[in-house]
């Protein structure tokens, strides 16, 4: 399932004002894998996600997606390859859910035209893919935070991307919806061969749903590297690595063949 390289991050550095967020980060992400970035607040995981999507330009380094450099690609080409789901999205106008999702067809629609039948059909498919066909005519402003998250995933899916980026997809969801959304994301990746890169706050979620985990630390002017570990969940989520990332002690429990992190 996990084949050749989908995303390559090459010595990416990023500074906000005087504080260095990312220092020469390099990663290679395989096609069709689910990769989660985990780390404390301010470790630069969202920044890295935005750099991958060319929403931010790094000070140094480059990002290649399917062999092409993201910041030299025409924006509509990039948007056909990559979908992005922002964190906690709000809008001022009560657009219908369907009208929000269909904006994901933007990279396929030429400047002076509007969505056509095909775009509408793909929108309906995406709505049913994430299980919200019933919400199509609801105003986006009147649905719950969890439903909005699904709308934005559907919007990214109508871009027909081979890479899906998600920034904290569970942040506004309740206990059950966190799990069901992550399950769905993983299913999308498995069924369609979509590469998923997401950031998550909860290391246990990362353990449960990732093929690989990137564990990041916050730079404190030291010479340490951003990336503490990058690899399979079992390799990366060790008590030592967690200690290095968060500065806290955890115990690893084996429960029914699954690993669980427990703060001590």
């Amino acid at each position: 399932m996990i084949g050749r390289e989908s995303i390559r991050i090459d010595e990416v550095s990023m500074t906000y004002g005087s504080s260095k967020i990312l220092d020469s980060v390099s990663l290679s992400i395989g096609k069709g894998s689910v990769v989660t970035m985990v780390g404390p607040n301010g470790c630069g995981k969202t920044t890295l996600l935005k750099i991958i999507n060319n929403l931010l330009k790094p000070d140094k380094g480059r990002v290649l997606v399917e062999g092409m450099e993201v910041n030299s690609m025409p924006s509509h080409r990039l948007a056909r390859i990559m979908g992005y789901v922002p964190q906690g999205h709000r809008i001022s106008f009560p657009f219908k859910v369907r009208d929000v999702v269909i904006t994901g067809r933007m990279p396929y629609i030429s400047a002076f035209s509007s969505p056509k039948r095909e775009d509408l059909e793909r929108t309906e498919q995406a709505l049913s893919l994430v299980g919200i066909s019933g919400l199509a005519d609801q105003p986006y402003t009147q649905i719950s935070g969890g439903e909005r998250q699904l709308v934005m995933i559907a919007r990214a899916m109508v871009q027909q991307p081979s890479v899906l980026l998600l920034d904290e997809p569970t942040s506004y969801l309740d206990f059950k919806n966190q799990i069901s959304t992550l399950k769905m994301i993983k299913e999308i990746s498995r069924n369609r061969g979509v590469t998923v890169v997401m950031t998550l706050h909860d290391p246990n979620h990362a353990l449960m749903f990732s093929d690989e985990i990137v564990l990041l630390r916050k730079l404190n002017g030291s010479r340490e590297e951003n990336v503490i570990a990058f690899g399979s969940p079992n390799e990366t989520m060790t008590p030592q690595n967690i200690q290095a990332a968060y500065g806290m002690e955890v115990e690893i429990l084996d429960v029914r063949g699954r690993k669980l992190l427990l703060p001590v």
Binding site: L55, S75, R77, A79, H89, T103, Q159
Partner: peptide, 8 residues
């Protein structure tokens, strides 16, 4: 950001 991420 939403507009840019769909290639606008």
């Amino acid at each position: 950001e939403e507009a840019r991420s769909v290639g606008m």
